[in-house]
Nucleic acid binder design. Structure first.
Length: 486
RNA sequence: GGCGGCAUGGCCAAGUGGCUAAGGCAAUGGAUUGCAAAUCCAUCAUCCCCAGUUCGAAUCUGGGUGCCGCCUCCA
């Protein structure tokens, strides 16, 4: 099945075809590390991880890069503002470098908590100043850029395709509407490649002067090409990155190399909160800690994100998160049931049920096949994770109505493992290290059955609680007791 | 002012011209239970509004209304 992906550049669904057979090279716009990323940021990082996991599972040789922007950019183009990094540093009475260290630690801890597979490279802007300078020089040499004093600007009129990605036309951009026009630029839409400011704390001495720092977009061009080559397969980011960031990246990169920069551009829609935007004034800019304080696992948030389509706005509400948490819990529970069912071999079922077993096998095998096919088709269709998840629940419902055992259960379990490989919904290291073996459980259950027969309810409930704490779910049915690990 | 997206049950969220509008969560009634949990059965939307196109529209067109993104760093 061919993977179909929406390409922001062509505004169409396209079949994914890697530039090099068997290889996928992708770049993701990562965080600016001046403050801890919030849950909205993680929506786009989780999307990047979904792509990563998908290509891994498809057997591609993947190289994944996510940048860390550790140099502040100007607040505005008028060159009179403080950058975010400096501002944060001043507020916390730390140096910009200390802020970077602190936020990076938080960022990577969050990624780990979200079960994000580590990218192959997390390049930092400050480690790639020479690469950026070199690219700027190249752009000057090819007349795509011009120097004014110690500043360098990209001439957007030198790149006819400027505006292709975002749909903007240079002359329609509302120059000067919200910021002062920088008089030294030839055209208001020209953007900075290199700026100078003696008062900056983070600055470098280069051929352009003593007190320079990189422009807003150059790091992504320089670093992506360093690690992935002049042309690569996929570049992602949030919808806000489309313009100007990615538009400028294309202009710079293709201006410098003359080659197509990126084949597929993928952008995630923003996360909304309570139907509106996140904002500091509304106090709804949540971090992962805020979720955990309310009793949610980062994996609950992950599942919430995975259930929505990446190109649709997703509305975050506490109710929605609660719903996702419950749903995830149910899948986890189902996995436990399947594991228990898989341990019961077809033939080891009650001897008198042999005909049922045969019938069940015939009945469930198609249900499993159907779920797998629906799941794969949904994912291949521009990552329709909503439908994919629905296919998973479809199979769960079939199981719950009439539990299947043995090979069928094992097949369903294998499917669930594939689902988990893509979505990472289940904790990886079983913290059910309470250490109750199957035999322990069976012994306790036997004791409880005894207690119940003698109507010793306190003892029966005590055992039930003990098993529950150990992650064992028991189900009392008339005449029998079933159990599985949660 | 320019460009773009969204609006589906209580909460999330698929579906983009045609069977009874996926799925999850919640809720309600029933079964079951020592109590409980779990589970099972049943119930629960005509798709923001208006006007069109069409044999037929949630799905297309036009006009409203609301929300979101970009045009300044921002996932």
């Amino acid at each position: 099945m061919t993977l179909q992906l929406y390409n922001s550049y062509s505004r169409q669904i396209e079949a994914f075809q890697p530039l090099d057979e068997g290889k996928v090279r992708m770049y993701h716009c990562g965080p600016t590390v001046y403050k801890r990323p919030h849950i909205g940021n993680y929506r786009s990082f989780l999307f990047a991880d979904l792509l990563r996991r998908l290509f891994d599972s498809m057997g591609y040789d993947v190289v994944q890069v996510m940048n860390i922007t550790d140099v502040g950019h100007l607040v505005d183009d008028a060159d009179d503002g403080e950058d975010k990094m400096l501002k944060q540093a001043r507020q916390e009475k730390l140096t910009p470098w200390q802020i970077v260290d602190k936020v990076c630690a938080e960022f990577f801890a969050d990624l780990h908590a979200l079960a994000v597979r580590p990218a192959h490279h997390y390049p930092r802007a400050t480690d790639h100043i020479p690469e950026m300078v070199k690219m700027v020089q190249k752009l000057i040499a090819s007349k795509h850029a011009y120097r004014v004093g110690d500043n360098v600007y990209f001439d957007v009129h030198s790149f006819p395709k400027y505006g292709q990605l975002s749909g903007n036309r240079i002359d329609e951009l509302d120059a000067g509407a919200r910021l002062e026009v920088n008089e030294e630029k030839k055209h208001p839409a020209d953007f900075a490649l290199w700026k100078s400011d003696p008062s900056h704390l983070m600055k470098w001495e280069t051929v352009f002067g003593e007190h320079g720092f990189p422009g807003w977009h150059i790091e992504c061009s320089a670093m992506s090409m360093k690690y992935l080559g002049q042309s690569f397969d996929i570049h992602t980011g949030g919808e806000d990155n489309v313009f100007p960031h990615h538009e400028c990246e294309i202009a710079q990169s293709e201006g410098a190399t003359g080659k197509r920069f990126v084949k597929h551009w993928l952008h995630t829609k923003f996360l909304q909160v309570d139907g509106g935007k996140m904002s500091k004034s509304l106090g709804n800019v949540w971090s992962l800690d805020d979720l955990e304080e309310r009793g949610f696992s980062p994996l609950d948030y992950r599942f919430l994100i995975m259930r929505g389509h990446y190109r649709t706005q997703l509305n975050f509400t506490w109710d929605a998160l609660r719903g996702a948490a419950e749903a995830r819990k149910n899948l986890l529970d189902w996995r436990g049931r399947l594991q228990a069912a898989a341990r019961t071999s077809d033939s080891a079922c009650r001897a008198d049920a042999a005909p049922d077993v045969v019938e069940a096998k015939q009945k469930f095998a198609p249900a499993i096949t159907e779920a797998v096919e629906k799941f794969d088709a949904a994912i291949a269709d521009d990552l329709n994770t909503s439908e994919a998840v629905a296919a998973v629940f479809g199979l769960r419902n079939a199981f719950m109505q009439d539990a299947f055992v043995g090979a069928n259960a094992q097949n369903a379990l294998d499917f669930l493992d594939r689902v988990d490989d893509l979505f990472a919904l289940f904790p990886t290291n079983g913290d059910d290290a309470e250490g109750l073996s199957d035999a322990d459980v069976e012994a306790l259950l036997a004791e409880r059955v005894n207690a119940r027969e003698q109507k010793d309810w306190p003892r029966a409930d005590e055992i039930r609680d003990q098993l529950q704490i150990a992650g064992i779910v028991i189900e009392d049915k008339s005449g029998s007791v079933h159990w599985h690990r949660s």
